[in-house]
């Protein structure tokens, strides 16, 4: 049994499927943080969150030197007041299919999510926000090891 419940998995979907935009935070090894909103998001297995690497720049630099990352729900309506924390990595398009990262098989995850724009096209994204061309470079993967509350009165409390 993983940490991601069905309620959480419902939130970790693209907006067009009832999910939410998320914020992905990383940090340089010396503690300079970076936070960016991400639309292409999904849960994977029972403990992982996938985000499409479309235009990530500083995020990838940070993850290459410091694997710690956090993800929050951009619009925490209802009970969706979660921050997910754990190690993260980047799986680039073209990585060896036989490679693994924790429980993830690189070939399998890229086969399923390596062409995200075809699988879940950003049809709900307003034209003035949508990128002129979606160019996926890979996947950002976070292994959820801890879920904490982002709700005002309980912020920082461990949920699981």
């Amino acid at each position: 049994m993983g940490l991601l419940t069905n309620e959480i998995k419902d939130a970790l979907k693209v907006v067009g499927k009832g999910g939410s935009v998320v914020h992905l935070a990383t940090s340089s090894i010396d503690g300079k943080p970076n936070i960016v909103a991400e639309r292409f998001v999904t849960s994977y297995l029972d403990d992982y969150i996938l985000i499409a690497d479309m235009f990530a720049q500083k995020t990838k630099v940070n993850l290459n030197e410091n694997p710690h990352a956090a993800i929050s729900i951009a619009h925490p309506i209802g009970s969706r007041s979660w921050v997910f924390r754990g190690p993260a990595t980047v799986i680039n398009i073209g990585a060896a299919a036989s490679d693994t990262w924790h429980d993830i098989n690189v070939g399998q995850v890229l086969a399923e999510w390596g062409d995200w724009a075809a699988k879940e096209p950003p049809l709900e994204v307003p034209p003035d926000i949508a990128p002129p061309k979606v160019a996926q470079r890979g996947l950002i993967v976070l292994k959820v090891e801890e879920i904490i509350s982002s709700e005002l009165k309980t912020s920082g409390n461990k949920i699981s």
């Binding site: 914020h23 935070a25 990383t26 940090s27 340089s28 090894i29 010396d30 503690g31 300079k32 943080p33 970076n34 936070i35 410091n66 710690h68 990352a69 956090a70 993800i71 929050s72 921050v83 924390r85 904490i148 982002s150 912020s155 920082g156």
Partner: peptide, 12 residues
């Protein structure tokens, strides 16, 4: 986003 001096990060 805040990070401690070891690069552990969280979000408020």
């Amino acid at each position: 986003a805040i990070a401690d001096d070891k690069g552990q990060i969280t979000i408020i």
